[in-house]
Design a protein around this nucleic acid. Structure first.
Lengths: 261, 261
DNA sequence: CAGTTTGGTGAACGGTGTAAACCGTAAACG
DNA sequence: CGTTTACGGTTTACACCGTTCACCAAACTG
């Protein structure tokens, strides 16, 4: 609260007080050990995390208020790390292959989800409804959401495919695109172009649908293995992004990625 | 195995031995109390179920081999009960309004899922992959799957909308529709018409996608509340069932159901 | 009637999240 | 500088969980 010349506790670099640095390092170790535990197939429990850090379980309560909060924290970090993977997949393509980058990120998302079903469930199949305030806010910061919406935005900036006009949107959708509560960087998107956000939401619904269905296994295992349903829904969505002509090329990219396993 | 004149243990009515009847009644009570527990918002635990039945937890092991098996059992029963609700919704329409019945069942599915998120998660968002054998077999018997595929079949029997031909299907899909591992009554569906099953799968993917996304809250709450995304995906899918002209009427039916809450 | 199967109990083990009391030490303050 | 506060940890304890085991009574079976 004081504005005198102190060790500037709000500076961006690292000139926080020593304690703050220590604390943040511990937070980091918590999420890292948690993710290691998950990756090993073990259960995520306060005791397991603590003991692996050489601590005792109640000590973790200095950092998280409850088990659920630990889960949320870890989920957030998992999403961050996974998003780096999705972005890296896109970066194997030239900067200006907007469609390819989007599709490759989406495909990477699918492969990640299938390979890490528990992590997928933790991030994308944990009810948000309850504990509305904080968890809802976190939702708007989902890194993967920002990545994909950013890619769709870049694609549109380039090819200006058709988008729905504001006045043909249902009221709730209009509100939603004018002041989004889902991850999307739209501050610099003019209001009259916000129909694009409705396309975001449709795309996310489609992508989420296939992937969740595949991850949870409520689909024929042979179709999951081949990825044909995934390819199908992507192809069906492509025209909405003005990519009808690119469908074959995009499918080939998807299949190559799937073949890599 | 013997064929002598015994109390016919395989008879359909109820002439099982007294013990068998007792046992089945207990099974029934187990699933009933479990569902009651869930409906009250309590956690589903062996101890809770047992104590509410006036038993102790280890006794339940005479009926289920593990907690997971209890969950599967209850999930199966929940699906059965929910399916009755979906079917009842359809039965508010005349027998020959095939499209309306299908759409109303799907809408009822959505409303049920939103109102019973934990039950939805238990039935439709529990990884099937693990414990492959038994649980995979159960998947082919999901009652709700049979209902909807049956309704799509009835619709097609009536209006014979276009379906993909077998030879334009990807190999994995062809296998899948010729010998389905997902719930679908196709025994009396000629092989050359099995392209319809691919439409089943597409429809299920679409429906599951929106509903799961809504239930888990990874969508703008205002759009969830209005149901506009649900309406949107149904409208987009309608043409595939030859229902392009019925879209407005179907949307009106959906909205009326949503308005009822 | 004797013998076996069935369905239950109670105690116990190892695991979980969480609350409370306690304490040394590092940081903050006069 | 010394004093005080607060942070970050421990121990202990509680209530719950799934699961196993030994035991037992009642019910069926030959």
């Amino acid at each position: 609260m004081s504005t005198d010349v102190q060790p500037t506790p709000a500076s961006p670099a690292s000139p926080q007080t020593r304690r703050e640095r220590q604390r943040e390092a511990t937070y980091d170790e918590i999420t890292r050990t948690s993710r290691t535990l998950l990756a090993e197939g073990s259960e995520l429990s306060l005791r397991a995390v603590a003991s692996r850090m050489g601590m005792t379980a109640p000590a973790l309560y200095r950092y998280v208020a409850s088990y659920q909060e630990l889960v949320d924290l870890v989920a957030f970090e998992i999403d961050r790390a996974a998003t780096e993977r999705f972005a890296a997949a896109a970066d194997t393509l030239p900067e200006d292959d907007y469609a390819g980058r989007l599709v490759l990120s989406a495909t990477e998302f699918r492969m990640w989800a299938l390979g890490n079903p528990r992590e997928f469930g933790m991030v994308f199949a944990n009810p948000i409804a309850e504990a509305a305030c904080t968890r809802r806010e976190m939702l708007t910061q989902v890194a993967s959401g920002h990545l994909m919406t950013g890619q769709m935005r870049a694609l549109w900036d380039h090819n200006h495919h058709a988008i729905p006009s504001l006045d043909e949107l249902p009221p709730s959708v209009r509100e939603s695109v004018l002041d989004p509560l889902i991850p999307a960087k739209v501050d610099d998107l003019p209001l009259e172009d916000r129909g694009l956000v409705w396309l975001y939401q449709q795309g996310w619904t489609t992508l989420y649908g296939v992937v969740a269905l595949e991850v949870f296994g409520h689909m024929d295992p042979r179709v999951i293995e081949s990825g044909d349903m995934f390819v199908h829904v992507v192809r069906e969505f492509a025209p909405k992004l003005g990519l009808a002509d690119d469908a074959d090329r995009l499918e080939e990219m998807i299949r190559q990625r799937i073949a890599r396993g």
